[in-house]
């Protein structure tokens, strides 16, 4: 079996996708924690057991994400290239993706693709966690709701407040003052989604919106955020079935292509 692995070591979660040829064998997600090497090992061994395969059956590994240089891999690529690869692979038969929005644990990326699906430009927020998964995590803690409840709760918003602080720390203070004013939690959540959408929207507009727009990363599970982004950008967002593992999938696709290329060249 010519099995390959794509490993995405993100700031919050680590994802592994195993592929055999053009077929996805499976994927697994775990919190990255402080020791990403150990996390990858546990995750990978779990997958080997689940699929009844041996470690030596994995012929090629591509690592991506912030911890990409921390583990052994045949190749190391950025999450931006991996994400672009996966979006093209997942959507090309249905919708031609031209823009990708990825919201991760500590950053946010917008990638532009040309008519052939090749990456031509990208932008990435840096230095702070504003408008990222971490922002949502902090806010859910203050509001005492589960992260995966945010989307459903925001459906019931009635009077959405403006949250102007993009900084996670200042945003936290703003949310606390809204709570002390007696504002409804559902309304505040919708306000948070709107503020993230504004920030991400500004990044998207910087490199230009071209449809179809693909939205992935953990926060893509949040339907309230999706709705806020669609309103901000005035476009429909396409979300893959498992938006959290797209980048790992992209790494696995690259691993598969490289493995085939090398097998063909006899290297």
């Amino acid at each position: 079996m010519s099995i390959v692995a794509g490993i995405d070591i993100g700031s919050t979660t680590t994802k592994i996708v195993l592929m055999c040829g053009n077929k996805i064998l499976g994927s697994k997600i775990s919190s990255t924690g402080v020791n990403c090497k150990k996390t990858v090992k546990v995750l990978l061994y779990g997958m080997l057991e689940d699929h009844d395969i041996r470690e030596e059956d994995i012929h090629y590994t591509v690592a991506t994400g912030y911890g990409r240089r921390m583990i052994f891999a045949n190749e190391v690529i950025t999450e931006i290239t991996a994400n672009a690869k996966a979006a093209r692979w997942l959507m090309h038969e249905n919708v031609p993706v031209r823009t990708i929005i990825n919201i991760g644990g500590q950053d946010c990326k917008v990638i532009s693709l040309d008519n052939n699906g090749i990456m031509t430009n990208f932008t990435m927020n840096d230095k702070c966690a504003a408008g990222t998964g971490r922002f949502l995590e902090v806010m859910s803690r203050i509001l005492e709701v589960e992260l995966d409840e945010l989307g459903t709760l925001s459906d019931n918003a009635e009077d959405i407040p403006h949250i102007n602080s993009l900084c996670t720390v200042f945003g936290e203070s703003e949310v606390i003052s809204l709570l002390s004013q007696g504002r409804r939690v559902e309304d505040i959540i919708a306000g948070i989604h709107k503020s993230i959408a504004k920030r991400v929207g500004a990044m998207v507009k910087k490199i230009g919106v071209r449809e179809a727009v693909f939205f992935d990363g953990g926060p893509a599970f949040n339907k309230g955020l999706k709705r806020a982004l669609e309103q901000e950008l005035d476009v429909e967002l396409h979300i893959p079935p498992d938006p959290q593992v797209t980048t790992a999938l992209g790494a696995a696709i690259i691993a598969s292509e490289q493995f085939l290329r090398r097998a063909k060249n006899g290297t």
């Binding site: 912030y66 950025t78 931006i80 031509t120």
Partner: peptide, 16 residues
């Protein structure tokens, strides 16, 4: 500073 993020951007640019 924050060379991890700068590294990702530079590497992605080179890959492009």
């Amino acid at each position: 500073t924050t060379s991890g993020q700068i590294e990702t951007r530079v590497q992605a640019f080179i890959e492009m």
